[in-house]
Design a binder for these strands. Structure first.
Lengths: 342, 342
DNA sequence: TGAAATATCGGGAGCGTTCCCGATTGTAAA
DNA sequence: TTTACAATCGGGAACGCTCCCGATATTTCA
């Protein structure tokens, strides 16, 4: 049934050279004459030979694949991140091993452990929960020999290169924007519970700092857990206890969409009666009616850059090529859901 | 720096057994006494040993990983598919190697070739283009020894198990639904060019067949290339040449969203003036205003089932467990964008 | 022309497993 | 007690590659 695999020896025989030479042309080494290289290449093509990557991995101790763990591939934030990472990996001829943690720490751990079985030269991780268990594990990993790059996640290990987003500044910028538009009653619908997401905490902080800076006393914060439905309810709650609200800042576009619905149901017009500001700039933000003003996260770039750093590290590039942390500042995108107060 | 890898021998020494025995407990073989198994397990835990999967792959000729190629991970249709596939793979302790083809055939080929390098036990593919080049290649693959399962793609190779969607019936159902609502002037905005997507062709066919069945002569078909912008323009075109249109059926929800915008701009109300029917049932369909009536594709199930079949095949399960093709029938979801004609 | 330097190649060991076969021990039946 | 058989284990070869070292062929320069 399964005919004998053609291996490097088969090629060597047919080309009249040794396996070493075949290996050399396979890896574009210098020590081969043009003539023999050509001949070997011909045989390779003729026999449709494909090097066995397990053997290669075993012999070279490198697999040319990296592990990618995300919380929820279905979420546009993450899928765009994956695309960026994938593009860069493809460029450099690296493979990607994908793992989806579904937001649960145990699965995240399971993914990483799988990756540790030498299948993967390094790991790129994004967001996810922030349990001590996991963080400890990650710290350990870094001290061993699996290179790791972490995106959008708080970790106080200096050894682990990070690419982050300046959530504090972004939330500050968004809030200030609303204030400069003349709003004074500004609610903030935050994301997840404190422990689970550092990003969420930082955004709350940015909101607070802006209020303080501009001497606005009345802070109104309601949890929305990065969920549309929850944000809907949060909005209703805000509306009922603060009739005079004129702007709501949501920590994600998805939540803003939920908010829009609640506002509509309450008979409030956006942006005439209340301004709505989102966060993320997912595709939906420009599709929805009214189009959402929002803080744009460079999702694709985060993936691309994260992967670039990881590969640089794997390829033994100088430290500057990966070790330095990067922090993205977010751009404010003005669309139709916000306007100056009359 | 990098301390010597702990391998099966290290464990064997420390546990006072041979490497074969360690291998046996690693693979849950029978021929080990409870006592030695326990001891070996202890040592493994103590040393945090992780088997090297390259070596394992080389020796066993199996990698326990499958390749997954999708056209565009960012597209909700595909990301949900990936999630389904990923879930099943995780359940069975398989790894997933992800490749994103960006809709271009050459990249699709490149992905498959990468997978051929023994990294992967089998391949799961979805949609994508339909070039002869690729189809030939796939046929070859199947005749060789890389198991392949194909989802939502036309391929006339009986050896390749397929999971498909009954696009003809679905488009027929959608069109009939519109007709039964009293519509007679029904336009269809189709997807891609004929060559590129079999699904698109089938949907056109279903639309046509329904019109014929109910003796409606005036078929109106405009290309929208599965793109929001294109669908916007297609809609404008339809509107200008067919003032009396009362319903438009889009071959994807994304296109329907583009259509909604065009309709709005033209001052037409949905569903009062014209009914809009989508296809896919992506999340957006229920978010948008008005919520889209649509044909629901079982995206998650397609991924899950495809992966299940693939793994069944890899695990040497009996033929019934994977060889039989499956065809999903689509459910019509009624929401707000369609209504009976007055 | 000869020696030294260089380009080109081959062979062997090793990467960390699995798997087969045979050895050893223990146990039950005769 | 002897024999047969099962349970348990160890050793060696193989998987297909890389990498180092040394051998040979070719060129270069004095």
């Amino acid at each position: 049934m399964k005919n004998k695999n053609i291996d490097i020896y088969t090629i060597a025989d047919k080309a009249g050279v040794s396996k070493s030479t075949v290996s050399r042309v396979l890896n574009n080494k210098e020590d081969v004459s043009a003539r023999t290289r050509k001949k070997v290449l011909e045989v390779i093509n003729e026999l449709k030979y494909r090097p066995n990557s397990s053997a290669k991995g075993l012999a070279s101790q490198r697999t040319k694949t990296v592990g990618l763990v995300v919380s929820e591939i279905t979420n546009p934030f993450f899928s765009m991140f994956v695309k960026g990472a994938e593009d860069k990996a493809m460029e450099e001829n690296y493979n990607i091993m994908l793992a989806n943690s579904n937001w649960v720490v145990e699965e995240e751990l399971k993914c990483i452990r799988m990756f540790e079985e030498g299948r993967v030269d390094g790991i790129l991780m994004i967001s996810g929960g922030g349990s001590d268990l996991l963080n400890n594990y990650l710290n350990n990993l870094a001290n061993k020999d699996t290179p790791l790059i972490v995106v959008d996640r708080k970790l106080d290990n200096e050894e682990i290169p990070k690419v982050n987003v300046n959530n504090i500044a972004a939330a500050f910028k968004g809030t200030r924007y609303l204030i400069e538009l003349g709003h004074e009653k500004i609610a903030f619908v935050r994301g997840d519970d404190v422990a689970a997401s550092a990003a969420s905490v930082d955004r709350v902080r940015g909101y607070r700092e802006a209020l303080q800076k501009f001497n606005i006393e009345n802070e109104i914060i309601e949890p929305g857990f990065f969920d549309r439905e929850e944000a809907y309810q949060a909005t209703e709650k805000i509306l009922s206890s603060h009739k005079d609200i004129t702007a709501i800042f949501y920590a994600s576009d998805m939540m803003a969409v939920g908010g829009l619905k609640a506002l509509d149901k309450a008979g409030l017009k956006v942006p005439d009666d209340v301004s709505v500001l989102g966060f993320d700039d997912i595709e939906l933000a420009s599709i929805i009616e009214p189009a959402l003003s929002t803080l744009k996260q460079p999702r694709y770039q985060m993936g691309y850059l994260g992967m670039e750093k990881l590969i640089n590290k794997l390829e033994g590039k100088p430290k500057e090529a990966y070790a330095e942390d990067v922090i993205f500042e977010l751009e404010l995108i003005e669309r139709e859901s916000t306007r100056a107060i009359k």
